[in-house]
C-alpha cells in the first residue's frame, strides 16, 4: 500500500522513464445500444508523456476518457497499467478496492466542470487535503501545510485556504481541482477539456501552469480537447478522432504541421493560429 512519505516526492524518478509503457490501451470499443461511442482505440503511453486526444464533439474523445477512468464499462478491449511496484495489470482484473485506491492516489482526473471534481461546500484546504486523509495522514498541521504549499504552487493565495470554492472564479476552481488531484503525486492524469469555458487570458495562464507542473512532476497525461492550440502547447503526441475512430496519430508537431488525413487537414486549417 502507499506510504505517506512516498507521496511527497517532487523529482522525476529516473527508473520511471523505463522502456515499459505506463499505460497500454488495446482495442477500446464502446457501443451505446446501436450508437457507436468509440471503436478500436489503441495506444501506448510512457511515463512523463502527454498525449492529446482531439476531435469535434461526437468524435468519441470524451467516451474514450470515461472508459479509461472506469466511469463507463467498455464493450470490448482492455487497459493495462504499470503499477508502482512495476507489475503491469489489466485494470478490469483489479478488485474494486484496488481500483478505487488507484484512482485516488496514482491517477488524477481533472473534470471539465470543476464543480463536479471538487467538494463545493468544503474549504480549499479540505479539498486538497482529502486524498491525504484518505491514505492515512492524521496530523492536522501537516495536512494544512501541505495544502498551503500546493495552493501556492497552483497560484492560489494560500490565505484563502479556508474558503470554499463557491467564492472562487472559474479559473481558480480549475487550479484547485488540479491541486486536489496532484497532492498524492499521481503518475497519470486524465484531463477533460481543462480549459473549457474559461476566458482566453485565463486559459493561457492555466495552460502555462499545466505545462510547468507536468514537466516538474514528470506526469504522464491524456488531455482531451477540441482546441488544437491546447494540444500543441501541452502534448508531445496527438490522436485525432472522428466518428468514434482514431484517424491519425503521431508526434504533435508533425501531425499539426503536416497533416496527412483530409479531416486533420480541415481541422488544422480552420484553427486560428496561436
Amino acid at each position: 500500500m502507499l506510504d505517506a512519505d512516498v507521496i511527497t516526492r517532487t523529482r522525476i524518478d529516473e527508473a520511471e522513464l523505463a522502456d515499459e509503457p505506463l499505460l497500454i490501451a488495446e482495442g477500446l470499443t464502446k457501443w451505446y445500444g446501436r450508437q457507436l461511442g468509440c471503436r478500436d482505440v489503441s495506444f501506448e503511453l510512457y511515463a512523463g508523456e502527454v498525449l492529446a486526444v482531439v476531435g469535434e464533439s461526437g468524435s468519441g474523445k470524451s467516451t474514450l476518457l470515461q472508459l479509461l477512468a472506469g466511469q463507463l464499462a467498455m464493450s470490448s478491449g482492455r487497459v493495462l497499467y504499470r503499477l508502482r511496484d512495476g507489475a503491469t495489470r489489466d485494470l478490469a482484473m483489479l478488485t474494486e478496492a484496488e481500483r478505487r485506491l488507484l484512482f485516488r492516489t496514482d491517477w488524477g482526473f481533472v473534470q471539465q466542470d470543476a464543480t463536479l471534481g471538487l467538494r463545493m461546500s468544503v474549504s480549499a484546504g479540505g479539498n486538497v487535503g482529502e486524498r491525504l486523509m484518505a491514505v492515512g495522514w492524521r496530523h492536522y498541521g501537516r495536512i494544512r501545510h501541505e495544502a498551503e504549499s500546493w495552493l501556492d504552487r497552483v497560484e492560489i493565495d494560500p490565505e484563502r485556504i479556508d474558503e470554499t470554492p463557491r467564492s472562487f472564479s472559474g479559473g481558480m476552481r480549475q487550479r484547485l481541482q488540479i491541486a486536489r488531484n496532484l497532492v498524492t503525486a499521481p503518475r497519470l492524469v486524465l484531463m477533460d477539456e481543462p480549459t473549457g469555458g474559461l476566458d482566453v487570458s485565463v486559459q493561457a495562464r492555466l495552460l502555462d501552469l499545466l505545462r510547468r507542473l507536468v514537466q516538474d512532476l514528470g506526469l504522464a497525461a491524456i488531455v482531451v480537447t477540441h482546441d488544437l492550440a491546447v494540444a500543441r502547447l501541452l502534448s508531445q503526441r496527438i490522436m485525432v478522432m472522428k466518428g468514434g475512430r482514431v484517424i491519425e496519430q503521431g508526434l504533435t508537431d508533425q501531425v499539426l504541421d503536416d497533416p496527412q488525413q483530409p479531416y486533420t487537414q480541415l481541422l488544422v486549417s480552420s484553427v486560428v493560429p496561436v
Binding site: 467538494r119 468544503v122 484546504g125 479540505g126 482529502e130 486524498r131 486523509m133 484518505a134 491514505v135 485556504i161
Partner: peptide
C-alpha cells in the same frame, strides 16, 4: 477519508 475531511473542516 471523508470523515476526517469533516473533522478537518471543523478545526479550520
Amino acid at each position: 477519508g471523508v470523515m476526517h475531511v469533516k473533522l478537518y473542516e471543523d478545526i479550520a
